[in-house]
Write a protein that binds this DNA or RNA. Structure first.
Lengths: 173, 173
DNA sequence: ATGATACTTTACAGAATTGTACAGTATTTG
DNA sequence: CAAATACTGTACAATTCTGTAAAGTATCAT
């Protein structure tokens, strides 16, 4: 489970463009130089971003790329899935079924449950973090919280938890 | 960003073994058949798990694999990193520096901040979810919570948030 | 002892991903 | 209109990952 190269570089290119604002513009050459990428590679990445509707391209002599929307309106989830596909393949069960025709855990597959749940979890986090957050350096808003202070719970169960066991959250199953 | 095949299958093999308990045992053949994998491939996966200290192997005629520790003591984070390497490469900046000698964002790299933060976030979630949770089907404890009820916040800021804005959490930056 | 069984290790073919090369199309400037 | 500039699309070499193959080592039953 890792960030792919395309996701990494693509996100950076988009971030650079976002820094110029909606009315700003940069050519592939400029972006490539700023990010230390080759021009053909930057072209490919920008092409992906354009087809995903995240940037708009102007052709011709005075052409270049601009960010398609306000950075506040672009979540990381949309960006990363555009660049690297879905977090969990929708046909996961079908794809990873080994030599059998279908997933051997088809009926009751806790692995898929947990991985699907993780994906939703990551998606939630990534969706709520926007390009604007990255631009503003707002990484500390949801990040860098000491682990002991980090909780991920159902709100309803949380009120009780806050007044009872401050250290080890254990809501009813 | 995705779950790799080795992570997926390796986790399943480990889960199957965990179902037999610490004193239980299964041969590669049995595991391979149960998971729909080829015997050589299952061998490779079990080898990885063994070197990571997650399973123990007994050689010889009555040999086989057993889970190394109580499933309650094995978190998903340990498993997935053993099978697929770290979520974020420690030498991320060095590796993904394009054609330059070092990451062009070296001094102030919000991309690395956010990705590193995400990794810590995922790590926290995965560490707190154990094999036992998967065995018991306890996927609902931290999963399948409606998004509107899901909060990820600093505890200190949370008490105030619970009494003020129940829908859109916005702690001070 | 000896053979059967089962884990261990290394090497390798096929597939997917990465990054590059290059020819093509569109637009502006003079 | 013609040249320059910049995006677009396809094809391809290099690398990495996936899954297989096969030879080797250890242990137990007889």
């Amino acid at each position: 489970m890792r960030i792919t190269a395309v996701e990494e570089y693509g996100l950076r290119c988009l971030l650079t463009l976002a820094g110029k604002g909606t009315s700003g513009q940069m050519s592939i050459s400029e972006i490539a130089e700023k990010e230390g990428l080759s021009i053909p590679y930057a072209s490919k990445l920008l092409g992906i971003l354009r087809r995903a509707g995240l940037v708009v391209a102007a052709r011709g002599r005075t052409g270049g790329f601009s960010i398609a929307r306000d950075p506040k309106e672009i979540g990381l989830y949309e960006i990363l899935t555009a660049l690297g596909g879905p977090l969990i393949d929708p046909n996961h069960c079908q794809k990873y079924s080994g030599q059998l025709d279908e997933c051997v855990h088809f009926a009751n597959c806790s692995v898929h449950d947990i991985l699907g749940g993780l994906a939703g979890f990551v998606q939630d986090f990534l969706s709520k973090t926007t390009l604007q957050d990255l631009l503003a350096g707002n990484t500390s808003r949801r990040l860098f919280i000491p682990e002991k202070d980090l909780v991920v719970l159902n709100k309803a169960a949380l009120s009780a938890e806050l007044t009872e066991a401050p250290t080890t959250p254990e809501p009813g199953a």
